[in-house]
Design a protein around this nucleic acid. Sequence first.
RNA 1: GCCCUCUUGGCGGAACUGGUAGACGCAACGGACUUAAAAUCCGUCGUUCGCGAGGACGUGCCGGUUCGAGUCCGGCAGAGGGCACCA
Length: 884
Amino acid sequence: MERASETRRALFLRAASTSLHPENDGTLFMSRYNAREVEPKWQKQWEDGNVFLAKIDRSKPKYYVLEMFPYPSGKIHIGHGRNYVMGDVVARYKRAMGFNVLHPMGWDAFGLPAENAAMEQKVQPGKWTYANIATMKSQLKLLGLSIDWSREFATCDPAYYKHQQKMFLDFHRLGFVARKESNVNWDPVDHTVLANEQVIDGKGWRSGAVVEQRKLTQWFFKIADMAEELLSAIDDLDRWPDKVRLMQRNWIGRSEGARVTFKLNDPKHSTFEVFTTRPDTLFGASFCAISTDHPIAQDLAKGNTALTDFIAECKRIGTTEAAIETAEKMGFDTGLKAKHPFVEGQTLPVYVANFVLMEYGLGAIFGCPAHDQRDLDFARKYGLPVLPVVVPEGEDPKTFSVGTEAYTGDGRLANSDFMDGMSVPDAKRAVIKTLESMKVGRSTITYRLRDWGVSRQRFWGCPIPMIHCAACGVVPVPDEDLPVTLPEDAVLDEPGSPLARHPTWKNVACPKCGKPARRDTDTMDTFVDSSWYFARFCDNTATGPTNREAVDYWMPVDQYIGGIEHAILHLLYSRFFTRAMRKAGYTGVSEPFLRLFTQGMITHETYKDPDGKWLLPEEVEKRDDIAVKRGTNQPVTIGAVEKMSKSKKNVVPPEAVADTYGVDAARWFMMSDSPPERDSEWSDAGIEGAWRFVQRVWRIVTEASLPAVGTAMPGAFSAEALELRQLAHRTTAAVTEDLEKFRFNKAVARMYEFVNALGDYKAASADGQWALREALETLVLLMNPMVPHLAEECWQSLRHTTLVVHTAWPKADPALTRQDTVTIAIQVDGKRRDEIDMPKDADAKTVEAAVLARDMVAKAIDGRRVKKVIIVPNRIANIVVERA
RNA sequence: GCCCUCUUGGCGGAACUGGUAGACGCAACGGACUUAAAAUCCGUCGUUCGCGAGGACGUGCCGGUUCGAGUCCGGCAGAGGGCACCA
């Protein structure tokens, strides 16, 4: 593989030579297309002509295309490249279609990696980040993207986050912000809060200390209050992928159920409430369970070391849902007994349990083991009764029993007093009615969606503009004091929060009383930064967060493109934030993204050296079945194929590809083969094919003898010329449709077919040459969104003096795309036996007669009786015969 | 554990709303051109039986619906994404 590309590199250098072409009128031109010379030339022309600068122009329809902006981790990898090239194809296509296109780019510049780099390399996060931005910007520029760079910004720039702080204060005033406690991963050695990904097997990644959970008072955006609106508005996002809409619906997790009050045999805690989605199973209840964070559990733990230890044990599982859900179900019997609301004398033991979440519902449940798997696992472990109260249709209630699998299906109620015989929905209604009349319960709706905790005990983020005063409490920073900027002399490689530890930064006079007070030393979740950047792009010079004229013109984003990994959090937070911005008057829209395309991820094998360190693909050499580290020959472990990420080092930089084959070949290759929504594994094979395509197009264009630009259309065409014209127009129609539907790989295939036909075509006469010019021009315009440099070079070679970037998209002539005959497949009993050409839209009787007259058909029928003939117009005829 | 995807030749994939499975590209193989190589051009290319015409089988696995299933339904297996402090 390596050898092949070295050969190619050598070739590339040789290709710079020029020669005199025999059919050309004495002009010097390249025998080989030299991307290295051509590509920078056109990029300079585009830049000098300011052709991608977007301005408000009400004479054209606007089109805002945006790819999710990158985190400046250091280098762009080919996975990013696919994303941006896709957006660029759309931007260039829409421009050619006459739209006024906005296609901006910026940097999601706050985040953990900068702090890690600061600790490892002793470099300030800002310095590291801006250095990365410089590198990545030059990489993106290399790709020839049609971006309006005048709108560029980084979220770590105070000129950006100042407005974010302003909006935080506005949202606070408007009641979208709350302050409450939540659990965090606490590293007791480093005295720092850890991100979930920094907790490995319950231990801090750096210190190795067992991670504890701590309660901190933090800022939250009240997204849960908007749950219903965010849920119902998903119905209108009909240009989003269904799977993303479904994931968001599930995430919001609306569930209808009931809250039920249980009385306790404890004077101190006389009652508590549970939430259930299955109030119909109340007669099957055999225990109650409360969260470790439930006030009763916390209260009972005081002075009870066994319970305190149990709670501590549960907390070691961690804060992630995945860890809690997969952990073994554990409970601690509090000794308390809850009275069953309906059954006089029946009591249920009350456990503190590790699988009950305080954040969901009321932090307390009743367990009905027969009809909930989690409850059943728990009941089996602690020897609790399992009484079925819903029996499947057709089963006898007396004999129906539940073993190791809970019955969660439909059925009739049993063992349930007044509900016996009812269906599940009827029973739900009946039990709620009874609970209401007894004043011990009512129907209620809860959501899985929790408020969005935005406080982070980190340095490299947007400071939260709040001040804590001993006398006045929490006081917002006055607008005129914004931005609250990060100190430039923070020390990062010590335990604890750098802002809290900084000697002077936090000290400030209280804006209300003037006495000494303390700044909030937390910074915002970086998801806040990315929840409104699309609005800032409309005018990055606006003196407030947004310029209403600009956002009213450009928003919403017409086409948003990004990885499926953001299907939930980023998109949901942006939807919330946009609504909050609307209420604060910063935008007129509620939904930020009209159309969404989630591209598949680029994956690659992962590699580890004997010490377990990740290796870059370029550090690995493969020999037959084994892999070794280049240079050292150490054995390398080949790991799973995973999404390209810097943390696992399975990344391929785009420069190497672009340098050897040219950017257009890389762009063409990225758009070919894999459908864009699907994951695709990067491989070096195939880029050669793209390179050959580029060379082939160049050869065909430059070797053609053509009439001058603007020569009048001949009155008649030869059969071959007509055929070529038909292909050109059919290809135009097909590629246009493919691009509209994001079927880039199919558009590429259509253009390959077109080029194959052009390679075979011989222009014998003037009309043939005219048709050839038409076809070549069509090809150049159609391929332009994908290979824009090659398109410009070809356009010039075709003697045009204008730029392709200013040229309109070709239109297919319906007279030339029409098909007159169709091939109809003939089946006998569903098996294909023959085919027949028929005029398009021939009526069923004509087709049937023609089909039955075929020899092959008669042979296949073999004398059996024809039961019926199914004719699908223009497609298929199926003859159904009596079976032997 | 829960939610969401995906699975088609040696490989990436195509097949519009259930209607000719394998378009197009890659790789491989055979040939032409060349002193030679590269480039280029022509051809073969799911498996299998057959001299051939042609036939049988074939879209992860098992089953179902249908005149007809890669496509729809039920079940299973494998791979991947998300699970709230990675972005």
